[in-house]
Every structure is written in C-alpha cells, then in structure tokens.
C-alpha cells in the first residue's frame, strides 16, 4: 500500500487483505477535484499498471475510510473474477447500440404523440444515445452497489454510521438526478431509472438494516406513498404519476434483488468467495436487463472490449441513427 494518509485499523486490514489475496499493490491518492464517492481505477478494468483509489480532498476521516473500503470490495470482486473465471463487463457494440436506440426512439414517439409541447427533432435524436449510455452506466454500477455495501456493512461494522450517512446522501442524489428532464425523457426510461435506485435503497434499508434509508421516507416525491393503503394507491390520481410507477416497478426489482442476493455476507475472505459475489452480480444484472427488456442492448465482454467501444461512441451513435432513420441522417 502506498499512502501517507492515516487510516483506521480495520481499513488497513482490509487493504492488506486486498493486496494479499490479489497479489497486487494499491495506491491511495487525494485530489481536490475527486468525485464524491471516490474513483477506483483498477488493473482489471483499465489499461493501467497500478490500482488507484482517488479520494475527494474534503474526506479526511471516516468518510474517506468508508470510500476506501467500498472500492476495496469492488477491487476484490473484479480481481477474483479475473483470476478465477472470466471477468466480463456489460459492454456494447454497433449492433447493440442500434437496438437500444431504436427501442428508445419507438418509446419516445409514443410519449411525444401525447405531448402538447413537442421536443425539437434534433433534441430528440440527441436524447436517444444519451439515454442509452445512461442505462449503460447504471447497469454497470447499480447491481454491484448493494453487493458491495452489504459486504462492507458486515465486514467493517465500525463504519456503519459513516455508511448510513453516505448511503442517504447517495440515495437522494440518485433520485434527484435528471429531475429537470422529467418531461423530456420518455416516461418508461424515467421510471426504470428511478425504479433501479428505489429498489437498491429499499434492499439496503432492510439488509443493513437501517429504516432511515428508505426512499419512502427520504425522497420528497415518494413520501406520499409511505403507509398509503393499496386501495388509495390504485386510484387514478396516483397510478398516472411517474413516481407511483417507479414504486411499482421498483418493488418488482426489489423482489429480484431479494431473490438473487441471498448471500452469506460475512464468511472468511477468499478469492472463491469474491468470485461468488461476482457471479451473483452478473446474475442480478442479467435479471434486471431481462425485466427492463434490455437484454439485447448490451453484451458481456472483456473490459478491453468496453474500452475500445467507449472510444467509438461517436461512430456507433451515428451508425445507429443511420440504421434507424436511413438517408434522413446526413453522412
């Protein structure tokens, strides 16, 4: 481990475990521009020689320790998968981008037909790829989040209060995100996006267990559904709102999380165990993609494949637009 930061004992142990199990070195770096929640750049996913965790400068105590722990678990899962089986990520190619964008376009048309104020065509075209990539980001992050948080919760009980604060903050940020585009994003995608975060937060609320994590308490738009009777919820007044629909879809996703994440969160650490967590994450990702009818939107492939795909996003976007609209799109 390379760092001059003071670290609490359980975090130092955690880092030792990462380095021991994966036979690798971990570098901790502080950066004033570091994003909230920190960043993990690992040798298994990126074309780098060292594993680095970049921490925001303002996190100097236990907040920093929790961020490190979370990324350590993530690194162990990726590393174990790379060493034990085949580490794959949800990547994309020209064909999958076309499929995803075409579906988003069809759903947009349904929404636009009902709108008084239509979205300008150019904006609509731009939105297709933005939404596609938003789900690419979500699906590569969200299924792993409850796995990592559950593991940290059991492995490092000293950090539970810290974890609770950061999860509350994360939950609120995710639910507030893209709110200003609520009327622009096709309803289906707005709802699915919010449902994923809703399901994650509710899963963590009863797994950790922390009642105060519940989106039904913390998210202003969802508060009205807390303790609301089924009969009341079935009235037209509620069923037409995106947030009601997010709750309905989110409850189904929560059932998936509950089913897939029946894991022993606190066994002795080993590569086999972290590889098992990886397989669990893959299964959950597949189930969520199936539920959202997005199975053919992405493809499991190597991180190298994904890096190459990310370099070709402009090409893929243009090719997909040509595929959907033909000659209406200029060369």
């Amino acid at each position: 481990m390379k760092t001059n930061m003071p670290l609490s004992k359980p975090v130092r142990k955690m880092i030792d475990q990462v380095e021991g199990l994966l036979d690798t070195e971990l570098l901790l770096v502080r950066n004033a521009e570091g994003v909230t929640g920190g960043t993990l750049i690992d040798i298994y996913t990126y074309d780098v020689e060292k594993n680095i965790i970049i921490l925001p400068s303002q996190n100097i105590g236990l907040l920093k320790d929790f961020i490190i722990s979370k990324h350590c678990v993530s690194l162990l899962i990726r590393g174990a998968a790379a060493k034990k089986s085949h580490y794959r990520v949800c990547s994309f190619n020209q064909k999958t981008v076309s499929k995803g964008m075409r579906q988003i376009y069809i759903d947009s048309l349904k929404d636009e037909a009902k709108k008084v104020k239509k979205l300008p065509v150019q904006k609509l075209l731009e939105m297709l790829f933005i939404i596609y990539m938003q789900f690419h980001g979500n699906i590569n992050e969200l299924p792993w989040n409850p796995i990592i948080n559950s593991r940290v919760y059991y492995k490092l009980p000293q950090l539970r209060k810290t974890q609770l604060y950061l999860l509350l903050k994360e939950g609120k940020t995710d639910m507030d995100c893209s709110m200003e585009f609520e009327d622009i994003i096709p309803r289906r995608y707005f709802v699915l996006d919010k449902s994923m975060f809703y399901a994650r937060d509710l899963f963590l609320a009863h797994t950790l267990p922390a009642d105060s994590l519940s989106p039904l308490i913390n998210i202003p738009q969802m508060k009205k559904f807390d303790h609301l009777e089924v009969k009341e919820m079935m009235t037209t007044r509620w069923t037409h709102t995106a947030w009601y629909q997010s709750k309905v879809f989110g409850d189904t996703m929560l059932a998936m999380l509950d089913k897939d994440l029946k894991v022993n969160w606190n066994p002795t650490a080993s590569l086999d165990y972290y590889n098992e967590l990886y397989e669990t994450g893959v299964k959950l990702t597949d189930d969520l993609l199936g539920f959202m009818t997005m199975k053919d939107w992405f493809v499991w492939d190597t991180p190298r494949h994904q890096r190459a795909a990310l370099e070709k996003v402009d090409v893929y976007e243009h090719a997909a637009l040509k595929d959907i609209f033909g000659d209406l799109i200029a060369e």
Binding site: Q58, N59, G61, L62, L63, Q158
Partner: peptide
C-alpha cells in the same frame, strides 16, 4: 473520538 470526528466531517461535507 471517531464518532466526534465523523460528526464534524459530516458537517464539513
């Protein structure tokens, strides 16, 4: 001591 540190760090955050 950790609890006090966390409390202050949350306020700063």
């Amino acid at each position: 001591a950790f609890a006090r540190s966390l409390e202050l760090e949350i306020i700063l955050d």
